[in-house]
């Protein structure tokens, strides 16, 4: 059971959050310009990394804010937490 440091509320139990999958996938500004393959790339393709992964979480039973998390999926350690719109920490690549 993770302990997640919500950037707005502080450390809370995982049960207050919901996971939103991979982070930093930007919705295309002009979807109509995209080919089926390009759209499918955005829509369906997700990395499934063993190791350091950037992902989105929502403090759904708290402040309702979405934010980003850097997590090592091999040991579940959360390495960093940052707000939406902020650049991912450079030390994790």
């Amino acid at each position: 059971m993770f302990l997640i440091n919500c950037p707005f509320c502080g450390e809370r139990d995982q049960s207050e959050f919901s996971s939103g999958g991979e982070a930093h996938i930007v919705r295309p500004k002009q979807p109509t310009e995209l080919s089926d393959d390009e759209w499918a790339e955005y829509l369906f393709m997700r990395k499934n990394i063993k190791g350091i992964q950037f992902e989105r979480w929502n403090h759904v039973h708290g402040c309702r804010k979405w934010f980003n998390v850097v997590r090592d999926t091999s040991n579940d350690k959360i390495l960093s937490v940052y707000k939406m719109g902020e650049k991912p920490p450079v030390n994790y690549k």
Partner: peptide, 13 residues
Amino acid sequence: LSKLEDYLQTEWP
């Protein structure tokens, strides 16, 4: 609600 918040906060801030 979660979905709408998601778009508002992350795609269309």
